[in-house]
Design a protein around this nucleic acid. Structure first.
Lengths: 326, 326
DNA sequence: ATCAGTATTGTAAACGTTTACGTAAAGTGC
DNA sequence: GCACTTTACGTAAACGTTTACAATACTGAT
């Protein structure tokens, strides 16, 4: 049997209350002598505190739950690192639950599971909640925060890049480098996508350019989407394309190379995300890079009630896939 | 306050024992009528079972803990998917703890944290334990299993690809395609690395070839390592290189292309891992592909006491980076 | 020696479940 | 109707902690 504080108490000849006090560092409530003794016995017995019991009596687990889409994106890792890092600093454990791939049932399931333990916060990583989910989440009195997804509803906590600003930034960067015919490839139909279209259009307008409707093409962020979309862009004669993700950018790049279109000389490509993928292609892909690690860090802050900005700034990382002006 | 079974009991006019029985599906111990009533009340009150309390009394959490190296490799996701999938099937939750990057302290910390809750199993994902860790793990009476790491000690549970067989397979594939001067790039100094060297050497010998000592070069599995190692291989005039990871393969490939060495015509490259990276380069990289998802699935089987093979088979996926014989 | 004040310790209840045990009611076969 | 089994439910203990409250032991000043 695993030893408990009872065993330590017996062995050390004190009450369990005393043991508990020294083991949870209630300073000033015990003498140095008994502390030594108890610690010694605890070590001898190979004692480890039973978190379950602690959580029960404290009615609260020092634990942050992360619900994550099963889709293995290559940036979720980085967000998780940030979460983990900050959580550890704040004395919180991290538990992660997969919610399938936009699978409503599993999403429900995950949320319900989380509600069954009294976590201090819930982080939803790239999950689009339906109405029921949202209801469930609100019903818990636990703070929750959407990560890498912004609703435009300030009642609901969230942390992400500012997708409008991000698209604006990318568009402007291309314009500043002499492009006027600019495509936007692979964006989705959700909030993220529409924000990006908005940013793109605004930047074009602000610089006195018109954005043709068929310059923006939908997609699912995948490599395959990128490959296919290149064909669709060919007749449009754009000179630059903003890709909705690094993977889309690589897809465009490879398809372009197969069609003998030189990147960046004939076609410039800028990716969104800035993961390691950008560094390993030839040419490497210029990107507007999201600070995923920081997004992770801030999400913990936010869900733990610390004030932070909702948007984490992005920045352009110049590599080799955009033709520079002069 | 969150409602408890006590509240339900009061509301429904039964004892908490009855409530507990219907809520945990102890069939045949309650009547249909009371079941209906209790379920109705539970729903009205918005009741959710408190897992913490359940775990405490059951002295066991239906929960598998995964301790994972912080290094974001692009395959840990796939292993995690497999773990998650199988765990859900077996009614286990999954909790994940990061252990820093070969950081002894954090590793200890993670193990200790896990010991504090009575999980049903511990999975160690790509962590190299030191002696103390191993001691700690054994001291828990909880089953633990190393994932993607094999010690050569059958006392210790583990699941991984058979690194010796894997290297043998890669080497043989190259030999069958007419190569005789074959390099091995970027392997480590741990068990994994030495197993691969062994497989490589054995395959060479079995086919009557000699493997020169400086044909095998150390590295850290990174893109950068690949880039640098190419230079080292140049004077050796090997016609094919086995890369210790996809990233190393991409590094070799890009460096080769920069040095005007045609892949696969002048130099063949085969990667180990077979992640999506292989598909997005030009040429795409032929790989000996590990079945990471399956590794994840089997690891939970193993740690839950179900019998499974320790090694998960690998297979060659032919893409475009190896010159084919005729 | 006594007292107040403080430092240290002990007692026992509480957290929300599960479950062994007991019992009353209902059903069965004769 | 009887003894017997089965069904349905209640009582209370247990899981391993924390903590309010009470109790005791010390300290130094008188």
């Amino acid at each position: 049997m695993k030893p408990t504080i009872k065993d330590i108490a017996a062995q050390a000849g004190v009450s369990i209350a005393t043991v508990s006090r020294v083991l949870s560092n209630k300073r000033g409530t015990y003498s140095e002598k008994t502390k030594e003794k108890i610690l010694k016995v605890a070590k001898e017995l190979g004692y480890h505190k039973n978190t379950t019991a602690v959580d029960l009596v404290k009615k609260k687990a020092d634990e942050i739950a992360v619900i994550i889409n099963a889709t293995p994106t290559n940036f979720s890792n980085m967000i998780l690192s940030g979460i983990q890092q900050r959580a550890t600093e704040l004395g919180q454990r991290v538990i992660i639950l997969y919610a399938g791939d936009r699978n409503t049932d599993m999403q429900h399931q995950a949320i319900t599971t989380v509600m069954a333990r009294s976590v201090s916060g819930i982080l939803l990583l790239a999950v689009e909640p339906d109405a029921t989910d949202l209801e469930l989440l609100k019903e818990t009195r636990t703070p929750f925060c959407f990560v890498s997804l912004y609703f435009g509803d300030d009642q609901i906590l969230s942390i992400s890049s500012d997708n409008k600003a991000l698209a604006y930034q990318a568009t402007e960067y291309l314009i500043n480098n002499g492009h006027t015919k600019i495509g936007l490839a692979g964006i989705d139909d959700y909030h993220t996508g529409s924000q990006r279209v908005l940013g793109y259009q605004t930047a074009m307008r602000d610089h006195g350019l018109v954005a043709k409707n068929d310059w923006v093409k939908r997609g699912d962020y995948s490599y395959e989407a990128g490959r296919q979309l290149l064909q669709a862009f060919l007749p449009l004669e754009v000179t630059a394309i903003i890709a909705a993700s690094d993977m889309v950018a690589v897809g465009l790049l490879n398809a372009a190379q197969q069609s003998q279109i030189a990147v960046p000389d004939k076609l410039s490509i800028i990716g969104i995300d800035g993961t390691f993928i950008c560094e390993v292609t030839t040419p490497p892909i210029t990107s507007v890079t999201q600070n995923f690690y920081e997004i992770g860090v801030r999400s913990v802050d936010k869900v733990m009630g610390k004030a932070t900005e909702t948007f984490v700034p992005t920045r352009i990382v110049v590599r080799g896939s955009v033709k520079l002006n002069r």
